[in-house]
């Protein structure tokens, strides 16, 4: 009989503290950044499936500086009018240099087809972060540049975006309750003269994350991720465009094990894809990618190897 009371009392205390937690609106957690609203769902569902061979090698020269080399070989799709996909074999080499510092992050990438990608992320104070992203190509009018200023408040985040071709955007996200955060965005583009607004909501508990986003461009995105355990999560997403009336829904799993990670997905267009990442030994990862599209009769298979010599190996992508 005496055994019964402590859990009861504990439960009461728990409930009390929960109520207190709910009342305390002045101490809400900081929400996730607006552009990362769907990050859990994207991590499970947007696996970067590839076709052909991929080889990545990265070597840390010292604690802060690392170089990366990657080779990609395989067929790439050529955009065409007909429904049949046309593929031509291509091969690319990419050279990258990374500089990591707690306050400063510099990433540069050069590809053999003349594309150059540069990213800078600098923490000016603990609250203000400046990000810059530039993409240069040898084709005219396809180079891009973007500046982001992120401000992290106690229970909100604000971001100002400035891009080339007079793009101005701002996002704001605020925690409303400890679990729910609401946000909005505004953008204005100068060259294809258009502007828009969007709203987003995100609800998360320890076991699930649900997020929804709607924009005046007509896109509606909804995501739901259920974490079954620490290793397994199931995700589903739903995308709908109000103007073009196309709907896509997909459901997938993400299984993280000690030596491997498997992600699988099937979507409403009948495309099945899976990506297996297997750690063979320290710093040596093996990738197997498969994607089946029965409707278009398009089957993609790829394998890859990722070698990270010494410390860091997370600069890919």
């Amino acid at each position: 009989m005496a055994d019964l009371f402590p859990p009861l009392a504990a439960a009461q205390v728990d409930a009390k503290s929960k109520v207190d937690e709910k009342v305390d609106y002045s101490n809400l957690p900081c929400p996730v950044p607006y552009e990362e609203l769907h990050r859990e769902a994207f991590m499970s569902l947007k696996s970067d499936n590839f076709e052909g061979l991929r080889f990545d090698f990265s070597k840390a020269l010292n604690q802060k500086f690392s170089l990366s080399h990657s080779v990609m070989m395989g067929p790439t799709e050529v955009p065409s009018q007909s429904s049949e996909t046309i593929k031509i074999p291509t091969a690319h080499y990419e050279f990258g240099a990374n500089y990591y510092d707690p306050k400063l992050l510099l990433i540069g990438r050069v590809m053999t087809d003349g594309r150059l990608n540069a990213r800078v992320k600098a923490d000016i104070t603990d609250k203000l972060v400046v990000k810059a992203n530039a993409q240069l190509t040898n084709e005219p009018h396809s180079s891009q540049a973007m500046f982001n200023f992120d401000y992290m408040g106690k229970d909100y985040r604000a971001q100002l975006q400035l891009g080339h071709s007079a793009l101005v955007g701002a996002t704001y996200i605020q925690s409303v309750t400890p679990r729910l955060s609401l946000g909005g965005e505004v953008f204005w583009a100068g060259v294809p003269r258009k502007s828009g607004i969007g709203y987003a909501a995100r609800y998360e508990t320890d076991k699930m994350v649900a997020s929804a986003q709607v924009a005046s461009t007509g896109a509606i995105v909804m995501n739901y991720v259920q974490k079954i355990s620490e290793k397994v999560s199931l995700a589903t997403d739903f995308m709908y465009n109000y103007f073009s009336r196309d709907v896509t829904a997909s459901v997938g799993y993400d299984y993280i094990l000690r030596q491997s990670r498997v992600r699988g997905k099937i979507d409403s267009n009948g495309v099945t894809s899976a990506l297996l990442e297997e750690r063979l030994s320290m710093g040596l990862n093996f990738l197997l990618s498969a994607e089946l599209d029965h409707k278009k009769k398009d089957y993609k298979f790829g394998f890859g190897l990722t070698i990270a010599a010494a410390v860091s190996a997370s600069g890919f992508g």
Binding site: Y253, L257, R258, S260, V262, G264, L276
Partner: peptide, 17 residues
């Protein structure tokens, strides 16, 4: 084929684990 892509790798990996 869908089973082969989605489930078989999972089974193998879980077995290894």
């Amino acid at each position: 084929t869908t089973f082969l892509i989605l489930v078989v790798p999972l089974i193998i990996v879980m077995d290894r684990e």
